[in-house]
Simulated assay, not measured.
Amino acid sequence: MQRLWLIIISVFVFSVGHHALAAICPDFSPVNHPPETPAPEKTQFDHMSNRLLSKFYTPYHMAHDVLVTEGDTAVMVGKFDYDFALHKDLEDESVHAYIFGTGMTEWEYLGDYTTDSDGKVYINLGRRSAGDYRVYMVVAGDLSTTTGYLSVVQKNTEAVLFDIDGTLTKSDSEAVAAYLGMSEADAYAGAADMVKAYQSKHYRIIYLSARPYWLAKDSRSWLGAQGIPAFHLHLDSNGELLDPTGKASYKAGYIKQLLSKGVKIVRVYGNATTDIEAYELAGIPKAETYIIGDHAGESGTQAVQDNYLSHISEVVNVTSDAQCQ
């Protein structure tokens, strides 16, 4: 009898301890259904050159998504420029910033920031509870806007990571065509359903692309058009080229950052040899590295053939739910 009680107690302690180690499950309802966005009063630009810039060119603003561990201070970078080709920076002008998300009932005003010589502002988001938040930025001079997302995670948060070009889209080159307005990038059959299936299993979704930062607006629009989560989206903040060198080291470096923050990347998807190299450099097991396209199955990776339709039923649907609470 005493031995039986010891077994019961041991199982109970293990279960409680295991449950305590699990991170909270992502809940995107608040961030995806915010109250009406703030509408600050429009004021005149401080500089005549910026008045002309705003009058004759279309805003092409973007914000870099941020992921931090609970307890850490978050800072988000907003980049403000005009025209999809010119990308003329908005310098020395006022930008209002707001935040809304987990546990909040209304937008919180974060302050009035001034763009620097690169058209950037650095928004102090403070320390937030674990969850997801929408950061809304408004240019005071013309009320043009951009939105970024803050993800505050706990240790052991489980995530699935995706490349975009040639992995969710059918071709690496489609990003260029879409950017130039020549066509809309086509998704692989089943790509959107696959991402949504992982989200329904409570995995955090992460997109990691070597696209340059100025494609953030188009990238987020494309994700939204597919009906899949538009964040967490990480592009190359220092990238200027559509086909940069050093893709593998860039991606491996960011994955290592995520791992150091306690994110458990349980599975990754890619299409290129640079994806295979990046995932290997970051220590992702080949058994959880899925590659589609010409390089499917290379270097011990798991092959995805032609599209994701059968992959969903054979792999995704039989994957256990994320360990979260």
Rank of each mutant, 00 (worst) to 15 (best):
R3V: 09
R3K: 14
L6G: 02
V13D: 05
V16F: 12
G17Y: 09
H18R: 11
H18P: 00
A20R: 05
L21N: 06
A23M: 03
I24M: 10
D27A: 08
S29L: 15
N32A: 14
P35N: 12
P35C: 14
E41G: 06
K42D: 10
D46R: 15
D46M: 12
H47Y: 13
K55T: 10
T58M: 13
H61S: 06
V66G: 00
G71Y: 07
M76T: 00
F80V: 02
A85D: 13
A85T: 05
H87D: 12
D89Y: 12
E91D: 12
D92P: 00
D92R: 10
V95W: 02
A97F: 04
F100V: 04
T102A: 14
T105C: 08
W107S: 08
L110M: 13
L110K: 13
D112Y: 09
D118T: 05
V121C: 09
V121E: 01
V121T: 14
R128Q: 14
R128A: 10
A140N: 07
G141P: 03
N156C: 11
N156R: 12
A159Q: 03
G166R: 02
T167F: 10
T167H: 02
L168E: 02
K170N: 08
S171M: 06
S173W: 05
M182L: 13
S183A: 14
E184K: 15
A187Q: 08
A189R: 15
M194D: 05
K196I: 08
Y198G: 05
H202F: 13
I205E: 02
L208A: 05
P212K: 04
A216M: 09
K217A: 12
D218F: 01
S221K: 15
G224V: 02
A225Y: 03
F231D: 06
H232S: 08
H234W: 04
G239S: 13
L242C: 00
D243F: 14
P244N: 07
T245D: 10
S249R: 12
I255L: 14
K256G: 08
Q257L: 13
S260N: 14
K261S: 15
V266G: 06
N271T: 09
N271R: 03
A282S: 06
P285C: 09
P285Y: 01
I291W: 07
I291E: 04
G293D: 12
H295E: 15
A296G: 10
Q305T: 11
N307W: 00
N307G: 06
N307M: 01
S310L: 06
S310N: 15
H311M: 11
E314C: 00
N317V: 01
V318Y: 10
T319S: 12
D321F: 05
A322S: 12
Q323C: 02
C324F: 11
Q325P: 03
Q325N: 14
